[in-house]
Design a protein around this nucleic acid. Structure first.
Length: 662
DNA sequence: GTCGTGTGTCATTAG
DNA sequence: ACCTAATGACACACG
């Protein structure tokens, strides 16, 4: 089959070359299954990448280069490839350029927000609005977040739900203990109320679908569609619809939008719910029960102790375990090994997996940039415009430079004038001078000589393909150079049209063929047969005429075929250039994303350490990071669990992730 | 003389 | 069956 032969030779080879040059792996199945027409066409049908489409006919009928043969289908194909490349390059790790800024502010007994403790090192990009401590509680909720932080934090990308250290004032502690209950103030020991562990230990059901909220959060993060809801950030830290303090503090309000740039006015650990929700695994559903008494649920109490503990604390980020972060904030308390125990939500891990991979494997932005540079410079495919065409035709360049200024006709005329083959004017129909070389380009379906400026690689050609001619016929036919040089444009055009098929022309003359070869070749079959019928021709003449016609048509076909090949190569080179540019662009974007993710992880780490460092047990002693870790349950609760359990969870999480990727 | 390139031609195939 | 386009292969001319 022609299609198989053709496409599996030309088309497939070209694609192979192209794709190998750019280092792209082709998933043929993807194309075949995704109904992307180009590759399907290559294998299954018509493709203009290298097709038998009759370009010459297009040119003949539409005046040559006006219709560029560049394939739309090919463009479509490469567009599809580009998109696929983008997807592959990003590898699902495209995370919003996110910056988290969380604020921990406590309110004093008079109800005003105050920065009871100085910021302990976590950058408070927008901390000024709260640390004055003069804003009334409600004002903070309603105005502070919206005005003091919401605007400035719009650039921040991550979700940092607000914390409120004094939740109980708005939401009476009823069913569940608040975070502050397990976060006694530094001024005095606090005991964990009996009810502290109850929500987890007893499996108390939360009125809110925190999992759903978490899903929402993740979806929002993934789509980078986070929007600031300052009200939620400041005032709706706790669900106003639920009386459950725990829920109020550690869960998102069901309808609370996740904010990309949230400043945590009135921040309390309760608001960490949203932070943790971004990170912690849903597996904590089980953990909350299995954890037994070892689990401490971080819930606020009604005392101000929480305020003194977490006041003016910037929870700038989402809690990330150090092993994910790679860098530990040494200024924010004791080192907290593996604080999250790998209980990050799969989705989150999925998003950052690539980054982790990158950072852990040394793929930092600098190296990425270097990689990019190497890619650009050492791709094995130099596609700069000055280079690519060179291979195409060194003669093209030379001929362009040498003869670009001269018109085609002049070039041809000179070239053929120097030829010794002079042909006399033979018949009245236009077979004027016989200048085979001059006519070479005339029959390439480019009827307008000016179009040949686009074919510089042809200009220098001055070959004499009369090698099969009998020597005697080559001597006297061609006009003298002097006369050619003085030819008028009209004469040149006539020559242009008449001069071709030197050998056949001579043969025709020798055989006394009564009509020009141009007619023999170009007349339609009917007219051609009619022409033959008008003359009494011998069998030898008829045979020659048919040979002339056949060769003439085949000559044009060969020229078109070569031109088509050349166009295909040029288009492929151009497409490779485009793909190179796209790849470079995507690589740059990738580096930027990696950088953003790293920053976000650092903030998360800092926030985690900040929160953990402020936790106190019933004796007022800090928890050892070697023994405990913060976890976030799927129901939104922030809990303190033994590290061994956290590690176990982390391993489980990793296995789950690995399985998912398989 | 050799090599690369351009061209013409033939044979073949498919539409 | 014939015509034509397309194309691989080959030979030749030329620089």
């Amino acid at each position: 089959m022609l299609s198989l032969k053709k496409y599996f030779t030309e088309g497939l080879i070209q694609f192979t070359i192209l794709l190998s040059l750019i280092g792209v792996r082709v998933d043929v199945d993807t194309y075949l299954n995704s109904h992307l027409p180009p590759l399907r066409e290559i294998f299954l049908g018509q493709s203009s990448a290298y097709t038998q489409t009759q370009f010459h006919n297009l040119r003949n009928t539409l005046d040559g280069y006006v219709i560029h043969p560049k394939s739309v289908d090919l463009d479509y194909y490469f567009t599809a490839r580009r998109l696929l490349n983008q997807v592959r390059a990003l590898d699902r790790f495209q995370v919003p350029t996110t910056e988290v800024s969380a604020w921990l502010v406590h309110r004093d007994s008079e109800g005003s927000v105050s920065g009871a403790q100085p910021n302990t090192g976590i950058a408070l990009e927008n901390g000024s609005g709260l640390q004055d401590g003069t804003v009334p509680d409600n004002e903070v909720r309603e105005n502070g977040a919206e005005q003091g932080f919401g605007e400035e934090l719009e650039d921040l990308g991550a979700v940092a739900p607000p914390m409120n250290g004094d939740l109980t004032k708005e939401f009476p502690a009823a069913d569940a203990p608040s975070l502050t209950e397990v976060l006694p103030s530094e001024s005095g020991p606090s005991t964990v109320p009996d009810g502290l562990l109850s929500p987890l230990l007893t499996g108390t059901e939360l009125p809110f679908d925190l999992e759903q909220q978490w899903q929402d959060l993740m979806s929002i993060m993934e789509t980078q569609g986070m929007e600031v809801n300052s009200t939620a950030a400041a005032g709706t830290l706790y669900d106003s619809t639920g009386g459950d303090i725990l829920n109020a503090n550690y869960s998102l309000a069901p309808s609370t939008p996740i904010n990309q740039n949230v400043s945590l006015h009135q921040a309390s650990l309760g608001s960490c719910t949203q932070d943790f929700a971004s990170l912690f695994s849903s597996e904590m559903e089980n953990l909350s029960v299995a954890g037994s008494s070892a689990l401490l649920q971080l819930v606020p109490d009604n005392s101000t102790g929480f305020n003194t503990t977490f006041g003016s604390t910037n929870l700038s980020g989402i809690f990330f375990p150090p092993q994910l972060n790679g860098t530990v904030n040494e200024t924010s308390g004791p080192e907290l090994p593996d604080p999250l125990g790998g209980l990050l939500d799969e989705a989150m891990l999925d998003e950052i997996s690539l980054m982790d991979l990158a950072t852990e494997e040394g793929f930092n932005p600098v190296q990425a940039s270097r990689l990019e540079e190497e890619f650009d410079s050492d791709s094995g495919l130099s596609l700069d415009s000055s280079h690519s065409p060179a291979s195409l035709s060194s003669s093209e360049a030379s001929s362009s430079s040498s003869s670009a200024s001269s018109s085609f006709s002049e070039e041809g005329a000179v070239g053929y004038n120097s030829d010794s083959e002079n042909v006399d004017v033979e018949d009245a129909e236009g077979a004027v001078g016989y200048q085979p070389e001059y006519s070479k380009f005339c029959r390439m379906s480019y009827q307008n000589p000016s179009q040949l400026q686009y074919l510089p690689y042809l200009e220098h050609v001055g070959h004499n393909h009369t090698y099969n001619m009998a020597p005697r016929t080559l001597d006297t036919d061609e006009p003298q150079p002097a006369t050619m040089g003085k030819k008028s444009a009209k004469d040149k055009q006539a020559d242009f049209l008449d001069k071709q098929m030197s050998r056949d022309e001579h043969r025709a003359r020798a055989m006394k063929i009564p009509f020009p070869n141009e007619k023999i070749i170009n007349l339609p079959v009917e007219e051609f047969n009619e022409l033959l019928s008008k003359y009494q021709l011998s069998e030898a003449q008829l045979s020659l005429i048919r040979d002339i016609r056949r060769r003439g048509k085949n000559k044009m076909a060969a020229q078109n075929c070569r031109k088509r090949k050349l166009d295909t190569i040029l288009n492929l080179e151009r497409d490779v250039e485009d793909l190179q540019r796209d790849k470079s662009k995507l690589l740059r974007e990738k580096v930027e994303f990696l950088r953003s993710i790293r920053q976000m992880k650092q903030k998360v780490q800092n926030l985690y350490q900040e929160v953990f460092g402020r936790l106190r047990d019933e004796n007022g002693q800090p928890y050892s990071p070697n023994q405990y870790a913060l976890q976030y349950a799927s129901n939104g609760s922030v809990i303190l669990i033994p590290r061994s359990l956290a590690d176990q969870q982390g391993r489980r999480q990793e296995r789950k992730q690995k399985d998912r990727r398989k």
